[in-house]
Design a protein around this nucleic acid. Sequence first.
DNA 1: AATATAATTTAACCATGGTTAAATTATACC
DNA 2: GGTATAATTTAACCATGGTTAAATTATATT
Lengths: 231, 231
Amino acid sequence: MVQDSSERLFSQSVEDYVKSIYLLQQDSGSVTTSELAKKMKTSPAASTKMIKHLTENRLTEHTRYHGVRLSPAGEKIALEIIRHHRLIELYLHQALGYEWDEVDAEAEKLEHHISEEFEARIDKMLDYPLTDPHGDPIPTRELEIAPRRGAPLDNSEPGDTLIILRVRDSNPEALRYLKHLEMRLGTILKIIEKQPFNGPITLKIGEKTHSIGRELAGHVFVERYVREVVD
Amino acid sequence: MVQDSSERLFSQSVEDYVKSIYLLQQDSGSVTTSELAKKMKTSPAASTKMIKHLTENRLTEHTRYHGVRLSPAGEKIALEIIRHHRLIELYLHQALGYEWDEVDAEAEKLEHHISEEFEARIDKMLDYPLTDPHGDPIPTRELEIAPRRGAPLDNSEPGDTLIILRVRDSNPEALRYLKHLEMRLGTILKIIEKQPFNGPITLKIGEKTHSIGRELAGHVFVERYVREVVD
DNA sequence: AATATAATTTAACCATGGTTAAATTATACC
DNA sequence: GGTATAATTTAACCATGGTTAAATTATATT
């Protein structure tokens, strides 16, 4: 049964579900059973069961047949895991030379198994960083978290000059492709054309132009670029 | 149920049992049910059950009411985990400044959750090391492992000049105490006196003398020191 | 060689986190 | 407002890895 380490109060499964609920409810307020099941790659029945279990443990609030949402206690656990995840991602990138498409999978496994000691040491070594390699905010030690920055690239219009602040971390293939197009955090680009019927978006990056599909563009989060970025 | 990652064929429990069998059988050839239960901090019944399971999976050979021993396949898995464990220990020590009494507990948790990629990267970063912070040999990538070096300090006799090659890694308190006495890997010491009836051993380290009990001395592995160590 | 004791195994049970199939509830449409 | 469809929940089941108590086997002693 692999007993929980002394520092851990809940099982890895509970941690994973709570984290997933946090990430899903960021976009939608509350989370449905089937959204959660899809994210966890299990059946809706398993999702229901876990929601029941989480609610009994006061990590979530649930009204039957409607969504689930994290309680303050649940949010705390989610933020702890997300802090682990994003610190580990950045550590792998900075200290071990991982590419940005490789860090998520490794962090996914390690996030449940590091000690507070390890967390503190890599946090210090990275000089208390605020964002991970995909531009997602890292919760502080006090579990305060900055809002996610940027709006989806496919919401912007031709003529806009934009800076990339964040990318969705979930899809390694997409990340590799973006890197290949030299679309990284901080990259400045201009929208040349947006074809109708959800057609491709044409961009200018430096001297080059590329076309990317709407779906990929939805993974890239940008804001208007003004010469001196306000801090 | 936390599905196994793509790189892992067996559960964390199986890995832990197999590793424990490896470590126990180093000293004793084969391992009894209750030795294994004690090491795993479970009941003998649980130990029996797992032995049955391991044997069905051809990781061990078992004759009922007698000991269990690893098959070649089991040994391979044990060495993979031990390689992970010892590389991680050394990495924590060298790259993150962990003390030698802190590395075991952290490595215990991480050893099951790193990828081949991670293993390869820290191995390279550490320049393909051969021993961990306690002087235990690290299996190579091909899973070849050097014999453990040194004989227990309490086997040596007054007058012997010795060098510390290895310490038992299991007991953080003992490790802290040894460090406090400046007994580290490579430390040279001379046995002044060995009191009868399993009494303390008096040592000279540099200009200082200390007395340590037999039990602690059993955790320290040494060899005769000759000016130029043969390589 | 018989027997007391210790070690091992088996049996019956539990919790966790999955599954599929059936029942229930919500919702969208006419 | 009733009904088809979709979503959710429940029920019955499974595997893993634990537990304690009882049965079995090994061993040590006389």
